[in-house]
Simulated assay, not measured.
Amino acid sequence: MTYTITTTIDAPFDDAVAAVMTALQDEGFGILCDIDVKTTLKEKLDVDVDQYRILGACNPPLAHEGLVEEPDLGALLPCNVVVYETDAGDVVVSAVDPQQLVAITENSELDGIATEVHERFERVLAVVTDQLTTESELQ
């Protein structure tokens, strides 16, 4: 069983991060946190790793709806979207699958919200893939 929705693209890392942020915004998500794992691990552990960013995405109306139904849902928020480089130089964009995440609550009242967020994340990944694939083909 997979717990993420993922795409792999051949694009510059920074372009992918920017495209993901824009696509999330277009789907009604704000970025509550942006963790630069590469920089953090270098500063804290003095280790070098490939580019890796964790974006904490939140759609306020959907988060509110979920929190009204299940106050402890906040422990699972925000929904994380990661962007990272592979050893082969590709960029992976991976979003938590909200349907899998919400399933652990065993609250069926959250199913509709999870489906809505899942569909929005699917659109985000499709837009990013299409946009960056088209841009790389034009170069």
Rank of each mutant, 00 (worst) to 15 (best):
M1L: 07
T2Y: 06
T2W: 02
T2V: 09
T7S: 06
I9R: 10
D10V: 03
A11S: 09
P12G: 12
P12N: 15
F13Y: 11
D15R: 10
D15A: 09
A16W: 00
V17S: 01
V17H: 00
V17C: 03
A19L: 11
A19H: 03
V20I: 12
V20K: 10
V20S: 11
M21F: 00
T22Q: 14
A23S: 14
L24I: 04
Q25F: 01
D26E: 13
D26S: 05
E27R: 09
E27T: 02
G28K: 11
F29C: 14
F29I: 07
G30W: 06
G30K: 05
I31P: 04
L32M: 13
C33M: 11
D34M: 05
D36E: 13
V37W: 07
K38N: 05
K38T: 06
T39N: 10
L41Y: 15
E43K: 00
K44H: 14
K44A: 13
K44D: 13
L45R: 08
L45Y: 12
D48I: 00
V49I: 11
V49R: 05
D50C: 02
D50M: 11
D50L: 15
Y52L: 12
R53W: 14
R53Y: 14
R53L: 01
I54L: 10
I54S: 08
I54V: 04
I54E: 06
I54R: 09
I54W: 07
I54K: 05
G56T: 13
A57W: 09
A57L: 10
C58G: 09
C58A: 03
L62W: 08
A63F: 11
G66P: 06
L67I: 15
E70T: 14
E70Y: 09
P71R: 15
D72R: 14
G74Q: 09
A75Q: 09
A75H: 03
L76F: 15
L77F: 14
L77P: 08
P78L: 12
C79G: 04
N80W: 02
N80S: 15
V81T: 00
V82N: 04
V82A: 14
V83C: 06
V83Y: 03
V83D: 05
Y84N: 02
Y84A: 04
Y84Q: 07
E85K: 01
D87Q: 00
D87V: 08
D87T: 05
D90P: 01
V91H: 03
V91D: 06
V93E: 12
S94C: 12
S94E: 10
V96E: 15
V96N: 06
D97I: 05
P98W: 07
P98Y: 07
P98C: 06
Q99P: 01
Q99F: 00
Q99S: 03
L101E: 02
V102C: 08
I104Y: 10
E106I: 03
S108I: 11
S108L: 06
E109P: 02
L110E: 08
L110Q: 10
G112L: 09
G112I: 09
G112D: 10
I113W: 02
I113D: 02
I113F: 04
E116W: 01
E116P: 02
H118M: 02
R120H: 08
R120T: 01
E122R: 15
R123D: 14
L125A: 11
A126L: 13
A126P: 02
A126H: 14
Q131E: 15
Q131P: 00
T133S: 13
E135R: 13
E135H: 07
E135L: 15
S136Q: 10
S136K: 14
E137P: 00
L138C: 02
L138A: 15
